[in-house]
Each structure stands twice: as structure tokens, then as C-alpha cells.
Simulated scan of single mutants.
Amino acid sequence: MTKAHEKLNYVEFAARDLAATKAFFTATFGWQFVDYGPDYAAFAGEGLDGGFYRADLCGQSAQGGALLVFYSADIAATQARVFQHGGTIIRPLFDFPGGRRFHFVEPSGNEFAVWSEAAGA
């Protein structure tokens, strides 16, 4: 884990179904987890290190939660994998100034987004 003074270093998410969340991120994005007991799983090397803890909560941007955004060089393929592995697309692919993106919810209910450059950029 890289440690830079006063920079974002780690993020934690609640997970109602820790096993399903781990399986989703492993299948969709190739993440690997280290379990710290039955109620916590950590990930590293994914742009920002972090973990999931077992809780009946979730983060949604409409409720004021932070929105973490992935980058994809092939956003259509990423969207297809998210759907294929059990993610729910809650905001289909749309254009915004500077690119395209979509929002999804993983099996425990946490919202994420994926962005890419505009088509033909």
C-alpha cells in the first residue's frame, strides 16, 4: 500500500452479502481479496486499496454517498461484464462532457460508475 502524506489511501464499503460482493468483483474486474475474519475482506492494487465489511448498509450517490468511478478502455465490454456477473445497471451508458459513463450497483447495493473517453476520441 502506497503511503503519501495527506492523500487518499484507503476506502471501506459496507456489504450485506460479503461473499456475493467478493465473487462479483473477482469475476468482473479480476480483484483478489484477503479475508480478515468472517466479516472483513480487503483488496489492494486496484487504484485505491480498501475493503468490505459486513453490514446491512450500502452507499448510493442519491443518498449522499461518495461515488467511486472506474476507468475503462472498452466501456461496452465492461458494462457487459458488470451485467453478466450480477451487477445492476442503474444508469445506462450516457455521454457527458469529456466522455461516456454508466452507473451500476453491485450485489450488496453499493453504487459505482465506469467512465471512458468519448467514442472516437
Results as ranks from 00 to 15, higher is better:
Arg16Gln: 15
Arg54Asn: 14
Glu12Met: 00
Phe112Pro: 03
His5Tyr: 11
Asp95Pro: 04
Tyr36Pro: 09
Met1Arg: 05
Cys58Thr: 05
Ala19Val: 10
Phe43Arg: 07
Gly51Ile: 11
Ala41Thr: 15
Leu18Phe: 12
Phe52Leu: 13
Val34Gly: 06
Leu68Trp: 02
Ala76Gln: 10
Ile75Tyr: 01
Ala76Gly: 07
Asp74Leu: 04
Trp31Leu: 09
His85Asp: 05
Ala15Val: 09
Ile89Trp: 03
Ala19Lys: 13
Gly47Thr: 06
His5Phe: 15
Leu67Ala: 05
Thr88Cys: 09
Leu8His: 14
Ala77Met: 09
Asp35Phe: 12
His103Leu: 08
Gly65Val: 01
Ser116Met: 01
Gly30Cys: 07
Ile75Trp: 03
Ala41Lys: 05
Arg100Trp: 02
Ile75Glu: 00
Gln79Met: 15
Arg16Ile: 15
Ala118Gln: 05
Phe96Tyr: 14
Gly120Tyr: 09
Glu6Met: 12
Lys3Arg: 12
Ala19Trp: 08
His5Leu: 15
Phe70Trp: 11
Ala119Gly: 07
Pro92Leu: 13
Ala77Phe: 09
Ala66His: 00
Pro38Asp: 11
Tyr71Thr: 07
Leu8Tyr: 13
Tyr40Pro: 12
Gln32Pro: 01
Ala14Asn: 00
Ala113Arg: 06
Glu111Phe: 04
Glu46Asp: 04
Lys3Phe: 06
Asn9Cys: 08
Gly98Ala: 04
Phe43Glu: 04
Met1Ala: 11
Ile90Cys: 05
His5Lys: 10
Ala55His: 06
Glu111Leu: 05
Asn110Trp: 04
Gly65Arg: 04
Leu93Arg: 07
Arg81Tyr: 04
Gln32Asn: 09
Ala42Leu: 01
Glu117Thr: 11
Gly99Phe: 00
Cys58Gln: 07
Gly99Leu: 01
Tyr71Met: 03
Ser108Tyr: 08
Phe83Lys: 15
Asn9Ile: 11
Pro38Asn: 08
Gly87Ile: 07
Val69Ile: 03
Arg81Ile: 04
Ala80Ile: 06
Leu67Asp: 05
Ala23Ile: 04
His103Glu: 12
Leu93Thr: 08
Leu68Arg: 05
Ala119Asp: 12
Arg101Val: 00
Ala119Val: 10
Ser72Cys: 13
Phe24Thr: 01
Glu111Asn: 03
Phe83Asn: 15
Tyr36Cys: 11
Ser108Asp: 11
Phe33Tyr: 06
Pro97Cys: 02
Phe29Asn: 02
Leu57Asn: 09
Gly45Arg: 10
Ser72Thr: 10
Thr78Pro: 08
Asp95Gln: 12
Arg100Gln: 09
Phe33Ala: 01
Ser108Thr: 10
Gly64Arg: 01
Gly50His: 11
Gly37Trp: 01
His5Arg: 07
Ser61Arg: 07
Gly45His: 03
Ala4Val: 13
Phe83Ala: 15
Ala66Tyr: 00
Gly47Asn: 09
Asn110Met: 06
